[in-house]
């Protein structure tokens, strides 16, 4: 049906960048919260905060069957790394991990997982929230919402109605 029914898949599996207790990745595979948490755990960190963004079944009361994410891999990884470095420095984190899923993501599955570790919980909570806001604002990833009635919409910002994927 829609032109994007087989979205471009520029690589298989996972691509990642890592440095000094920072890990960012893009993957077509299911996200693993335990793995993300283990990446940032440390004897120096009294707090680990884990955020999982999951796909919702409805948008403005329309039923969503699944979502699909596309990206510009090298630029998105670069932006993720820059966000992770900034947030880690600002909140004096011990470690940070950001993973975003690509391709088809069924309802109730995780599309993004952020794990941060900090000596104390306050910094962890704040860093986790700030990190997600930066990711949503800046990372070069695009979401499509596929609806039960066959429509496909590309969402804009949170809560804003999207535009049809196929132009008339």
């Amino acid at each position: 049906m829609a032109a994007n029914s087989t979205p471009q898949k520029p690589f298989e599996g996972e691509q990642s960048l890592s440095e000094h207790n920072i890990h960012v990745s893009l993957t077509y595979d299911s996200l693993d919260a335990t793995k993300a948490m283990n990446r940032v755990k440390s004897g120096e960190a009294g707090a680990v905060v884990l955020f999982a963004g999951c796909t919702r079944s409805t948008f403005h009361s329309k039923t969503v069957t699944h979502l699909a994410y596309s990206t510009y891999p090298p630029l998105a990884l670069r932006t993720l790394l820059s966000i992770a470095k900034d947030v880690k420095a600002k909140h004096e984190l011990v470690g940070i991990s950001i993973s975003h899923r690509l391709g088809r993501v069924d309802i109730g599955e995780e599309s993004v997982i952020i794990a941060v570790s900090a000596p104390h919980r306050k910094a962890g909570w704040l860093a986790g929230e700030e990190c997600l806001e930066h990711v949503k604002e800046r990372v070069e990833i695009w979401k499509e919402e596929w609806f039960e009635d066959g429509g496909v919409w590309r969402s804009n910002r949170d809560g804003a109605v999207g535009v049809p994927v196929v132009e008339s």
Partner: peptide
């Protein structure tokens, strides 16, 4: 060169 439309991750 790449055209980058408004992003919508998460």
């Amino acid at each position: 060169v790449a055209i980058i439309p408004p992003v919508s991750s998460g």
